[in-house]
């Protein structure tokens, strides 16, 4: 039988190694016609569906996790970019090369902004749920990023931005892969369900024909 698990080497998979479900186009060819083969095939198909469903559940959870993580990273990145932009401007080294495509007229405006920007940045931040406090932030080149596992590390703004951007891109890529995997899994599940139904119907028809002919001999039960 072509579905045997030993033949993994030639089974098609998607980029993340999830195997492709075989399609049974002709039940007669697929089964060798004995009762036991019908039963074992049905069982095997059901088992494969269960496996696919289990994978589907896992990937769904992974996707949900990423859906929560991505906005967090994006928010942090937005803040770092804001701080960096502010600092760059203060230092008068606003990277003219970087933004000159759309910021030409903005640059003029920035000139007058600079004077007023000298004061420390005033922020309102959440101290606890529904409780906010004000803080003034002194100009600094460093930001502290939570790396997880109760570790916080100081990064220069440039590096923080680079790090967060790459993390964001990575998370988005992983999410895209997860979505692709889900689509793939759903497809395989459909194929397997169709296979199951085909074999089952084929069996029903065969039994009925056997009964109609009154040939009990072919029926081993």
């Amino acid at each position: 039988m072509s579905v045997s698990t030993s033949s993994t080497s030639q089974v098609e998979t998607n980029p993340r190694g999830i195997p492709k479900a075989p399609f049974v186009s002709n039940v007669d060819d697929y089964l060798d016609g004995t009762d036991s083969s019908v039963e074992s095939t049905l069982n095997k198909f059901q088992e494969m569906i269960a496996k696919y469903r289990y994978m589907e559940l896992n990937v769904q959870n992974r996707r949900k996790g990423l859906d929560e993580k991505i906005p967090d990273i994006a928010k942090t990145l937005a803040m770092v970019e804001f701080l960096k932009d502010r600092r760059d401007r203060k230092l008068g080294k606003k990277a003219k090369k970087d933004d000159d495509d759309d910021d030409l007229d903005d640059d003029l405006e920035d000139e007058d902004d600079e004077a007023a920007d000298d004061a420390p940045l005033k922020t309102t931040f959440e101290l606890n749920d529904t409780l906010y406090a004000e803080a003034e932030i002194e100009e600094s080149e460093l930001v502290y990023l939570w790396l997880g596992a109760n570790v916080m590390l100081a990064y220069p703004l440039d590096e923080a931005q680079a790090l967060l951007s790459s993390k964001l891109a990575g998370a988005q890529q992983t999410r895209a892969n997860a979505v692709e995997d889900l689509e793939w899994l759903r497809e395989q599940i459909t194929v397997m369900e169709v296979n199951l139904a085909r074999v089952y119907n084929w069996d029903v028809r065969r039994r009925r024909e056997a009964k109609a002919k009154g040939i009990e001999g072919t029926d081993e039960k």
Binding site: A78, M79, A116, L121, K122, T123, T124, F125, E126, Y132
Partner: peptide, 9 residues
């Protein structure tokens, strides 16, 4: 911006 509110012009 993110979780924090900044006072800006």
């Amino acid at each position: 911006i993110g979780e924090t509110i900044v006072h800006i012009k």
